[in-house]
């Protein structure tokens, strides 16, 4: 059951991407694409999934959708406005620095989501990760503090709250 669910998850990701990529819903494409997606799913399932899924994971999926909306509508917009202000102002007021911030999510997927979120918001970039001691090294355009815990509050707390719920 849970194995079938894992396969279904990989298949639906692959197939929906296929439909968007090929840009057509003709029967020809849908049928051949589903065959191709089944083949791809069988090939990559073990690469993608380390813990078999269960039905209760749908809750996590809901958080993922919520997070996507929050990230694109709030976090991203806020960061863009901040950077736009800096770019457009006559006296550029920045204090670039590389800071160390801890992270507490346990899975690689969760860590990647946090790192990707930090990098994708303008002004901060993850340049190195220490998976052993669980630290990100982040280049921060307007560094307010060098204290790891306080820098984390400014940069990644909100990302990590969701990431914890989505990937654990």
């Amino acid at each position: 059951m849970s194995r079938a669910l894992s396969y279904l998850a990989v298949f639906s990701m692959t197939y929906s991407f296929y439909i968007v990529f090929s840009g057509t819903t003709s029967l020809f494409s849908l049928v051949l694409g589903s065959l191709g997606s089944i083949l791809v799913t069988v090939l990559v399932k073990s690469l993608l999934i380390s813990r078999e899924l269960s039905l209760s994971d749908i809750r996590r999926l809901t958080y993922l959708v919520l997070y996507y909306i929050y990230y694109m509508a709030v976090a991203e917009v806020r960061a863009h406005i901040d950077i736009a202000k800096i770019v457009l102002s006559r006296k550029i007021n920045i204090s670039p620095a590389i800071v160390k911030i801890p992270y507490y999510v346990e899975t690689n997927y969760g860590m990647t989501l946090v790192a990707g979120s930090i990098t994708n918001t303008p002004g901060t970039i993850v340049i190195q990760v220490d998976t052993g001691r669980k630290y990100f090294y982040v280049h921060w355009l307007v560094a307010k503090t060098f204290e790891p815990a306080r820098a984390r509050e400014d940069i990644s707390t909100s990302f990590e709250k969701y990431s914890q719920k989505i990937f654990g």
Partner: peptide, 12 residues
């Protein structure tokens, strides 16, 4: 999987 399926799509 996305790379594999897009390659297949281009071929099909």
């Amino acid at each position: 999987p996305l790379i594999l399926i897009s390659g297949l799509s281009i071929a099909i």
